Simulated scan of single mutants.
Amino acid sequence: MSEQHEPRERQERQEQGDPAAAPHTPRSLIVTLYGAYGRAPGGAALAVAELIRLMEALGVDAPSVRSSVSRLKRRGLLVARRTPDGAAGYALSDEARQVLDDGDARIFTLPRRRLSDGWVLAVFSVPEAERSKRHLLRSRLGGLGFGTVAPGVWIAPGRVRDEAAHTLRRLGLDGYVDLFRGEHVGYAATADAVARWWDLDALAALHEEFLRRHEPVLRSWRERPARPAADAYRDHLLALDAWRRLPYADPGLPAALLPARWPGERSADVFLHLDELLRGPALSHVRQVRGELARRAARHRRTEPGRG
């Protein structure tokens, strides 16, 4: 991929709610917020005032929230919907909800890493007149954890076949791709081939960065668990926003094919323990903020001239 296309691809993935998008941008944090706390049955709409208050704790100012919500709405990730108390708000679109639902298994479950799973190959050809489809196809395969064997030939562990087939069909890209199941039989050792198909140094660096930022957070919560729910919310959302791209960038290769002291399992362990510790109090904080703002809005309506 050319360097001039990479920023555009990252931006498109971020706006479309792709779990592999770069973390901690306002749009990424908002999508993570909805994914973590905004998928109640029937669709949980959040008022803009609620989003502003919840994003403020993460260092995102009100203009950035409004701009990001507007962009996510234009991209079809958010739709206008009334909150339970009748205020104007936004909820996840059906498409965005499907993307997030599909991602749960990867994000919150450690993969089975078995050599016996074999491989799935994606072989594709896209006409030059449809270059945008080729760009999207490469982006999505990369976001599913596929590595590159050769131009138009991508590979992933066999267990991702069904997910890949579902995702490509949902995006209307299945007409350009053939999927195959197989095993690697030579000539190089499979571990050596894997090091060509994926940039293992870059993947290890992603895990190490996650550990650098969030392992001390986990340690501090284990040492001092009695802390405000607002702190749990902040630390949980930042960890989830950083983590949710890693299970997509990292294909989850068997340990026998990875370098010694691979950091992936350790970073997954840190995230899953943080999620277990913080999800409950974080959700309580979100509910508290929403309840407080709803009561404030109700008082305002009662005292507003011409009402009551």
Score class of each variant (00 low, 15 high):
H184C: 03
E183S: 10
A260G: 08
P151W: 08
K73E: 02
D162P: 01
G118Q: 04
H285N: 05
Y176N: 11
E304D: 04
P251E: 08
R287N: 13
W197S: 12
G43M: 07
R219I: 02
A122V: 14
P84Q: 04
A260H: 10
L253H: 04
A156C: 06
V270E: 01
Q98K: 11
P247M: 05
V60S: 03
R82L: 13
S125G: 10
L258E: 06
D117E: 15
R71E: 03
P84V: 07
L240F: 14
A202M: 01
A122Q: 05
A294M: 06
D102K: 01
A47C: 08
P251V: 08
P151Q: 09
P225Q: 13
L278Y: 06
S284C: 06
K133E: 14
A226E: 11
G89D: 10
R302M: 12
A202F: 02
P225C: 13
Q98T: 12
L272T: 06
R138E: 13
V270R: 00
A20W: 15
R244Y: 05
A204D: 07
H24Q: 14
H135Y: 11
G86R: 11
V99P: 02
W119N: 04
L240M: 09
A229H: 13
G291R: 03
V79E: 15
L144W: 06
A45I: 11
A249N: 07
R219F: 05
D235E: 11
L78F: 10
D231V: 07
L237I: 09
R170W: 00
A22M: 04
P254S: 06
Q16P: 01
A165Q: 11
A189V: 02
